[in-house]
Design a protein around this nucleic acid. Structure first.
Lengths: 352, 352
DNA sequence: CTGTTAGCGCCTTCAG
DNA sequence: CTGAAGGCGCTAACAG
């Protein structure tokens, strides 16, 4: 009932092998024969059986892209770009189309491993891991083992916006300069004259959180403003609500603070909302800064000072690396710059 | 070199068939035997070969979720919810985990069809299509044919936030009341006293665009305000830039308009930016309204009046429907309500 | 350039 | 409850 390669072969009066060859396009076939086969494919409305191909060839055309939160444009932009890079130049019936597919871990370590296992099961051609990693030792060990196994099974592993992992299992790592960005952002605040700066950090145990915070602290230390920093730091998740709640908490701890640096732009927006609800003006009373420079940040009122991460470019590059369309950087690791975008939400302190 | 079912069977001193049975959990196996097998699986670090299973069983555990724009939270929220619903209750090594996977069409009809073909090739267990459909007749025909073929191959097809398609190939359709929402939004504007309302529509040829616009026009017609509407409508894409550009164009066409209704919240934010750049205040000079009620809308300044769509709930339900965990609604179609959220960005007109 | 021949690894009747 | 046997649909050497 379902039409197979053999049916096509029969209709085109060639052997199944020939049909396979024209479909995969990786072997010379006479033009007229190809014509005939393609016509038969169309007439029979034939669609290759993926599992059968994968089984026989011991590889599949599936490429997995793991993200922590698919509803967050930070990941959406990277994943979309990667998917574009992976899919491009492959259209129509011709072979070579990869099925680029994104998997949402929700930030859960179990789901991250589960997805990796599922992709391993499918014999995925490549896997792209985006976003910061969890710093829990058990999870790190489990991940290393899993990545090693994927790599040894021939799956290309690419990290995008993630710190490098030791070992030979990762083909390429694109890592963001979160530390440098965090540092420059706080230097900007210091240059404006701020000294009491609240920090709304992301979830503890995440590399992104730690690196951004380290940059912040480094800038403070260099300026000699390093007392009491624990009290001026509150951890939360990477969402709006967290920014709102943490800001109220910071204001309680130090009503005199003149600036707030947030873990990312979304959190910064929550911080802005909390400040407004307290009757504080931005930036006159309190300056606010974010991180990532997501598209909405420039439209915030006032426009948000933040650190720009080239998410689209990074995603594209990760996609190309996953496909082997681009050579890995020397040493397998490339650090991607983070650029300060000074806008209207930060200004010299007027009070305190 | 790569460990297979047979290896596990040998180690556990049972037949391959038995191993298969415990792994798939769909057949009675003695508890002690199961133990032994599971232990062998662990010791050998065995991972099922997906393609081989799929080939033999003629089904796979892949579920595809198609979205128009993965960087847009509108889709991210639905896709994330669907993925959660599909993945839940399936952890550890036990069988039954589906690989829920999202595919980004970028709004391109070709890519939509390509992804469907790729999913068909993988013998996907289910496919969830989210977001509005293109109204081009050729594409509609191609899609119907493709969906019919998927359905006849045993793939469950679910539509989420999409208008129903004729035929028996779709298991369930969840459609948003875009028309009703659009109508209520404009009624709200009319009730405030607005009469010259600019409309920034989405891309032409999309059902979502058309339905929202129809609701808008219906409200105007009911109020007897139906002259000149073509001139007060500008089409664009569903992004910020489009809102910005279209608003400038609308202002050029009618400098006296007192309100702008936008295709969605993102577009509304672009509209706000354009108004501000023209020195117009919101809502004193011009009211602005969006659609969708994405998370950032409540934090906009002023808070954005919009129409709330229960994206998370819809996505969850679509996921459950795709998994057969929930019975389809009567007739296979459920309409999901759209609720007006009146906030600070709309107020009675002060000028004109 | 094209046909022939073996499996790829697993599931699924059918016996026992 | 468990084992044995056949085949799912395709690709990959080999010949020719």
């Amino acid at each position: 009932m379902t039409v197979t390669l053999a049916d096509v072969a029969a209709r085109a009066r060639v052997s199944p092998a020939t049909v396979s060859r024209v479909l995969n396009g990786n072997y010379p076939v006479a033009a007229t024969t190809r014509e005939r086969v393609l016509r038969a494919v169309d007439e029979l409305d034939y669609v290759l059986n993926g599992p059968a191909s994968s089984l026989a060839a011991a590889t599949s055309d599936l490429v997995g892209i793991l993200v922590n939160d698919i509803a967050d444009p930070f990941f959406g932009i990277m994943a979309g770009a990667a998917q574009t890079a992976i899919g491009e130049g492959a259209f129509g019936r011709a072979g070579g189309e990869k099925l680029a597919v994104v998997c949402n871990t929700g930030g859960s370590p179990e789901r991250e491993l589960t997805y990796l296992t599922l992709l391993q099961r499918q014999r995925a051609a490549a896997v792209v891991l985006t976003g910061g990693a969890l710093e829990n030792p058990d999870h790190i060990a489990a991940m290393s083992a899993k990545l090693a196994r994927l790599a040894s099974a021939g799956t290309t592993v690419v990290l995008c916006g993630r710190p490098p992992v030791p070992g030979e299992s990762v083909t390429a790592t694109l890592t963001f300069d979160n530390r440098g960005g965090g540092r420059r952002l706080t230097e900007h605040l210091l240059a404006l004259g701020h000294r009491r700066i609240g920090y709304v950090a992301g979830p503890a145990e995440r590399t992104t959180t730690r690196h951004r915070l380290e940059g912040h602290r480094a800038a403070l230390a260099a300026a000699g403003v390093d007392e009491d920093q624990e009290r001026l730091t509150v951890h939360g998740s990477y969402d709006r609500r967290s920014g709102y709640d943490a800001t109220r908490e910071l204001l309680r701890r130090d009503p005199g603070l003149t600036a707030i640096a947030a873990a990312n732009d979304t959190v910064a927006l929550g911080a802005c909302a909390a400040l407004r609800d307290q009757g504080l003006r931005i930036p006159e009373d309190v300056s606010v800064a974010g991180f990532d420079d997501l598209p909405f940040s420039v439209d915030a009122v006032p426009a948000l000072t933040t650190v720009r991460l080239p998410l689209h470019e990074a995603g594209m590059r990760a996609g190309r690396l996953a496909m082997g369309k681009e050579a890995p950087p020397p040493g397998g690791i490339a650090t991607i710059g983070a650029e300060l975008m000074a806008r209207a939400s930060t200004a010299p302190p007027k009070r305190g």
